[in-house]
């Protein structure tokens, strides 16, 4: 029983750090770079991914024995696209400002490699409770990374975090940080720091 519990805990925590989709597997970099110009945008994108990934993984895991191997990818995509469209319509109907800020990147979650990757690598091979735990871990890891990246860029680029002014009045914002080059610089720095911490902890990539 205890080993069962630890393995479930492992399925959850691996997505947070050891197999973090952005920092360790370098998946889903397009939304990571494109929408993290503020903490709110990073978090909203993360929440949309949590919803899509958890729902898709649950369903795929449930129907994993029915779907023939040859058509599994088209089936995955249909399932993912359905949930993504639901998420996109929900945002447009109830949170129009966020929907406007995220623009085309919500519909583009369909082609986010993290989602298809988890279906192919995990959900289609594991029972439903494990698939859910795995999906939650991965998407929360993704969300945390995007939120931290968004916070860092917003802090330097706009002097605030979650729209709350942090820096003193006299602080001159680093405009580049909320522009596309700032995304590359900040992500590169973050991956560098993650690798450095891992080398200290003795975790191999």
């Amino acid at each position: 029983m205890s080993s069962f519990k630890t393995s479930l805990a492992h399925e959850f925590t691996k997505g947070l750090w050891k197999e973090n989709p952005v920092l360790r597997m370098l998946l889903g970099l397009c939304p990571t770079l494109a929408v993290t110009n503020s903490a709110v945008n990073g978090l909203s994108m993360g929440l949309a991914v949590i919803f899509t990934l958890t729902c898709s993984s649950t369903l795929i895991s449930l129907i994993r024995n029915i779907v023939p191997k040859q058509v599994r990818i088209p089936t995955f995509i249909i399932v993912i696209a359905t949930f993504v469209t639901v998420a996109d319509r929900t945002l447009a109907a109830f949170f129009p400002t966020i929907s406007k800020a995220l623009g085309p990147y919500v519909p583009l979650i369909v082609v986010n490699c993290i989602i298809l990757g988890r279906q192919e690598a995990f959900a289609s091979k594991n029972p439903v409770h494990r698939a859910i735990i795995d999906a939650l871990g991965m998407s929360i890891g993704f969300t945390l990374t995007l939120t931290i990246l968004g916070m860092f860029r917003e802090l330097l680029g706009a002097g605030s975090i979650f729209n709350l002014p942090i820096m003193p009045e006299s602080f001159d914002t680093w405009l580049v940080m909320i522009l596309p080059p700032g995304a590359f610089l900040a992500l590169g720095l973050m991956i560098g720091i993650a690798n450095w911490i891992n080398s200290k902890l003795g975790i191999k990539s």
């Binding site: 001159d172 680093w174 405009l175 580049v176 940080m177 522009l179 080059p181």
Partner: peptide, 10 residues
């Protein structure tokens, strides 16, 4: 280049 992109007015 970094300064130009960060502080374009200054």
């Amino acid at each position: 280049a970094f300064l130009q992109a960060s502080f374009p007015v200054k």
